[in-house]
């Protein structure tokens, strides 16, 4: 039975350039909760993020992604955005000549279908910039062009704050940030989440535990390995992983009955 207020991933298999990366992912993120998805490099976390948003290069072999009960895999990225999905990119893309403020104004109207006067929109934007400790002059800069790594990541969260999504996937937003910036980003996410009053779900994809330390509330931690979600538990799992390391976990999982890792290149 599909959950009507959740992002529900069922048996999702995805290939990139003919190589299968996701080998049957099952994961549920309800609205009103913050989940983490952790895992070693190459486990398929980013592939999942890009697939959820509809990147054209990712080929879905099997499975479903249900959002509020509807399979969204056939929808284009903009249609998914209009339904409330948002992806904070691991590598935000530079768009020369397009000012951030103008872009967000257009995007907000496209996403919500509402017309908002420029003046009012700009006042709101300035508020959101403050939330992320960003200078108002950012609005006039070209989208991601010449931004530092940290600025790009903050700009992603800014866009999330402005576009008011209902389901957010943050793809390694913490990577490349110093600890102060991690705290600013985490606090902003907490604020946006609190203000949404249960209308937003968040999936934080990360390699490390450190951003999760600042996320309040954190409802669940999922671990991905070799294209599958292999473990799912409360927030304390994040700390345990930090102590044990992924290698240790991998070994433990191998020892468990019923977990058989496919030999690589078995297709």
């Amino acid at each position: 039975m599909a959950q009507t207020d959740a992002l529900e991933i069922r048996g999702l298999r995805v290939a990139v350039d003919g190589k299968e990366i996701l080998k049957g992912v099952d994961l549920v993120v309800p609205k009103g909760e913050i989940h983490a998805l952790m895992g070693p490099n190459g486990s398929g976390k980013s592939t999942l993020a890009q697939t959820l948003m509809g990147h054209p290069r990712y080929e879905v072999l099997e499975g479903q992604v249900l959002w509020k009960g509807e399979n969204i895999l056939e929808l284009s990225p903009d249609e998914r955005a209009k339904k409330g999905l948002f992806l904070a990119f691991q590598y935000p893309v530079e768009i020369p000549g397009v000012a951030l403020g103008n872009f967000l104004h257009i995007a907000y109207q496209a996403r919500t279908g509402q017309e908002v006067p420029v003046g009012r929109f700009h006042r709101q934007l300035v508020q959101k910039l403050k939330l992320l400790d960003m200078d108002p002059s950012f609005a006039n800069r070209n989208l991601n062009e010449g931004f530092s790594g940290g600025e790009k990541k903050r700009c992603e969260i800014l866009q999330m704050a402005v576009l008011e999504p209902e389901m957010v996937v943050m793809d390694e937003t913490d990577s490349g940030l110093d600890i102060d910036a991690v705290r600013i980003v985490a606090n902003a996410v907490n604020r946006i989440f609190a203000e949404s009053q249960g209308k937003m779900g968040v999936l934080i994809i990360t390699h490390y535990q450190r951003i999760l330390r600042y996320i309040q509330p954190l409802h669940r931690v999922n671990v991905m390995m070799d294209g599958r979600v292999v473990l799912s538990d409360g927030p304390e799992l994040a700390e345990r992983l930090e102590e044990m390391g992924y290698d240790f976990l991998e070994k433990r999982l191998h020892e468990q009955a019923g977990f058989v890792k496919e030999p690589s290149g078995s297709d």
Partner: peptide, 19 residues
Amino acid sequence: QLFYLMSRGLPKRLAEKIV
């Protein structure tokens, strides 16, 4: 670039137009 802009809710034509 197109994917990025579209992921924010812009249809393809609009994304091309703003670029």
